[in-house]
Design a protein around this nucleic acid. Structure first.
Lengths: 238, 238
DNA sequence: TTCTAAAGGACTGTTTTTAGTCCAAGAGCT
DNA sequence: AGCTCTTGGACTAAAAACAGTCCTTTAGAA
């Protein structure tokens, strides 16, 4: 069956699973680090609990953790009150050098352009608890004080935080996943001095609009904000 | 680690895989049928190819096919030019009776409310090939002539077709997946005579707007259209 | 100091999944 | 009639993944 652009099975007959459990687990954990879900020096949940959450056996999880450990991403301490910690120096960019594929780039940018503005609108319209507000501001201030090395994961963390405010698990999942794909793309281009100041101005404006409940502004600034990354990436396609 | 509503790992530490390969494969195939990707009497790809597409071994795929076969969803013919066919009577609703969960319902409706209108806008703005136009009209006309029994999968097929026009694989995947979740929810409520005529008027208007490139109308009608299902489902929450 | 409990570390046997190979059916062609 | 090629059907050995159990380490409490 050839892949006719339309007609049955075009994009729904995709692989049911991404690979073997071991590799999938490594990949997933690496993403949680790169997305800033677990910050450097932070402690991961105990193996038994983490294994259950990831739906994988402890043996498999341990294999994956071991791999990440001797790749320098994780550090382990035994004994009570011990645990697995994210290396404080774990920001490595593996400087992958596969070229950017136009289709992948456009797909990520387009999908991101749908869900992130939508997340901003929803969270601006949502009735936010005090804890929610504080969480957003926490992520914002950590992002504002980021260095070029720590910027990427904190940026991801901030945008995921916005999706979390919207209260929709699906949306959070979509934002996180898309953000991970975006990070993979960004890893493939040279890091040039992005204009962090301008980006952070926008971050502050977005957070402010959301906290004030100003959905229109939150959406507008978010769209503008995404433009930056979009044109950066597109620049490397030509 | 308790599930604190914010803070690390809330919704990113989800299971890496949905279950064992066998069950996942069954589930996935069942969805392609319920989504109308494979219509009744249509032939599935050969086992060897299907297995490769789904990223699963032929043995596992065969186990799954066997299960679906003796559940009455599939029929098999051996020999050259044989194959696995979708039963012409395979619309079964398994009438699951788990109650609706409010959180799941709201999540599906909200996410759908983001991506489906976006898909409509994008496809209206896209430069459509003749083949693309024809495909949309084909899906529309099949939907217009559907009976209450065949309506659900054709409806899904139509909405997925719109996403396909947008040219974004991620968007197609998201629409298909969300639609599958929606179908699961609809399977849990009694089927009352939905107003198919009104829905089909909207379907025709959406298709027309997309073909004319009228993004604003396409979006507006899509949003209105989703309202119907939304209020139907919400009615069963109270 | 001793005890305790929470954490990582290691091993075992079982089940699932896989890749690979060969068999059986049967429609259409010569 | 007989050939041929595509497809489903069946089996095997190897690898992956699993659940379950027990060991080791170690900070803090008693």
């Amino acid at each position: 069956m050839q892949d006719s652009p339309f007609g049955p099975s075009y994009s729904v007959l995709r692989p049911v699973r991404g690979g073997n459990a071991f590799e999938e687990t490594i990949e997933h954990l690496l993403q949680t680090i790169k997305l800033g879900i677990f910050a450097p020096s932070e402690k991961l949940p105990p193996e038994r609990e983490l294994a259950e959450r990831l739906g994988v056996s402890r043996a498999t999880l341990r294999d994956a953790l071991g791999e990440l450990q001797n790749a320098g991403y994780l550090e382990v301490q035994r004994g009570r009150y011990g645990g697995t910690y994210v290396s404080s120096s774990a920001v490595h960019r593996p400087s992958e050098n596969r070229p950017l594929e136009r289709a992948e780039v456009e797909d990520v940018l387009l999908f991101r352009g749908i869900i992130e503005p939508a997340a901003a609108v929803l969270s601006a319209k949502a009735a936010l608890t005090a804890a929610a507000r504080q969480h957003l501001q926490q992520c914002l201030s950590e992002l504002m004080s980021a260095t070029p090395e720590t910027y990427r994961p904190r940026d991801a963390r901030f945008h995921i935080a916005i999706a979390e405010l919207s209260g929709s698990p699906s949306l959070v999942g979509a934002v996180a996943e898309t953000r991970a794909r975006l990070n993979d793309l960004l890893d493939r281009i040279p890091r040039l001095g992005t204009n962090l100041e301008h980006a952070n101005e926008q971050h502050a404006e977005i957070a402010e609009a959301i906290l004030k409940g100003d959905a229109v502004t939150a959406e507008r600034i978010t769209v503008e904000h995404l433009e930056g990354t979009a044109s950066l990436l597109r620049g490397f396609l030509a």
